[in-house]
Amino acid sequence: MAASHKTLPSRRERRRRAVWARRGSLLMLTLLVSAMGAAVAVNGVNPAAYGAAEPFRVTRAAPIGTSRSMSRDPLSSANGLTGSGDWLADDGDGLDTDKLVGWQADNPVVMDLLNGRDKDSVPAGFDPDHATGDTDGNAYPFSECTWWAYVRRHQLGLPAGSYMGNGNQWADSARRLGYWVDSTPRQGDVMVFQSGQAGSSLIYGHVAIVEQVNEDGSIVTSECGAAYNGQPFSRTFPASEVGDYQYIHY
């Protein structure tokens, strides 16, 4: 039986196939880069992955206030507490946790945290006199989410560290410094996104600032990213999801 022979493609056909192979490889590379770019389109978050994002218009809002030099307002029965000086666990001021022994109540933000709903939810490791970590000013690259978080916190009179890491590292970095970190949002908090959360970078995560806590429990943020050239945007997160994030308060 005669052996069959496969006809080899001509030189012209080989060149044509090589051209199409290169074009196919280039197309696949382009699609891959586009997909990766969409995930980190604003270097920390892809707003399109979580509904519409609105431009955030920075206003000269009054600072929330954290100056440690401010004098303490007397505690009164109006806020459910009595006494003065240190907040001691045994001085009859209604605070029944040993975690509060020796704390100075000279900071309005700390007072707001400890009065009312938060007095029994003091995170382990919280130190009201903690170091802020703000050693070299805003050391984050311009327009990145971390850059904006630092800028906005200082506009609001709240601290932020110079080297807190990528967005997904901020909560742990803050805890190490002694910040109050929990899952309850308050105005001015740094909202920390883990990798991939709500359209954030699969590698770097993301951070935002809580601008408003609505009556229905939803929150409004201000955020930024490299693609926004320093122009922050805003999103609204429903109440059903706000507890999925970590928040750095003070």
Results as ranks from 00 to 15, higher is better:
147 W>D: 05
171 A>H: 03
232 P>N: 08
118 D>M: 14
202 L>W: 11
155 Q>C: 05
74 P>F: 04
127 D>C: 03
43 N>M: 12
26 L>A: 15
198 A>F: 10
100 L>M: 13
66 T>Q: 12
147 W>R: 01
173 S>K: 12
96 D>G: 13
191 M>R: 03
183 S>D: 15
11 R>N: 13
185 P>K: 01
199 G>I: 01
151 V>L: 04
179 Y>H: 04
234 S>Y: 03
78 A>R: 15
100 L>Y: 14
204 Y>A: 05
26 L>Q: 14
76 S>N: 11
34 S>G: 07
231 Q>A: 07
21 A>V: 08
14 R>A: 09
123 P>C: 10
29 L>P: 00
135 T>A: 06
117 R>N: 13
204 Y>Q: 02
96 D>R: 08
86 D>S: 04
224 C>W: 02
145 C>F: 00
78 A>W: 10
93 D>K: 09
210 V>L: 00
113 L>A: 11
88 L>E: 11
35 A>E: 06
200 S>G: 08
188 G>R: 00
220 V>Y: 04
80 G>C: 07
74 P>Y: 01
207 V>I: 07
65 G>D: 01
46 N>Q: 07
190 V>R: 04
112 D>I: 02
53 A>V: 03
52 A>H: 02
105 A>G: 09
38 A>F: 09
239 A>V: 11
89 A>T: 04
30 T>V: 12
130 H>V: 00
225 G>T: 05
63 P>G: 01
119 K>F: 11
225 G>P: 08
100 L>A: 13
187 Q>P: 00
86 D>R: 08
61 A>P: 03
149 A>I: 02
68 R>H: 14
60 R>I: 02
239 A>D: 14
128 P>F: 02
239 A>I: 10
13 E>N: 05
197 Q>E: 15
63 P>N: 01
193 F>V: 03
158 L>G: 11
222 S>Y: 02
192 V>E: 04
138 N>F: 12
38 A>I: 07
20 W>I: 10
25 S>D: 06
94 G>M: 01
7 T>Y: 15
141 P>I: 06
190 V>I: 07
95 L>R: 15
83 G>T: 00
58 V>K: 01
64 I>S: 13
184 T>Y: 13
216 D>I: 04
83 G>Y: 00
46 N>S: 09
187 Q>T: 13
83 G>E: 05
228 Y>R: 13
85 G>Y: 07
14 R>Q: 09
199 G>L: 07
194 Q>N: 14
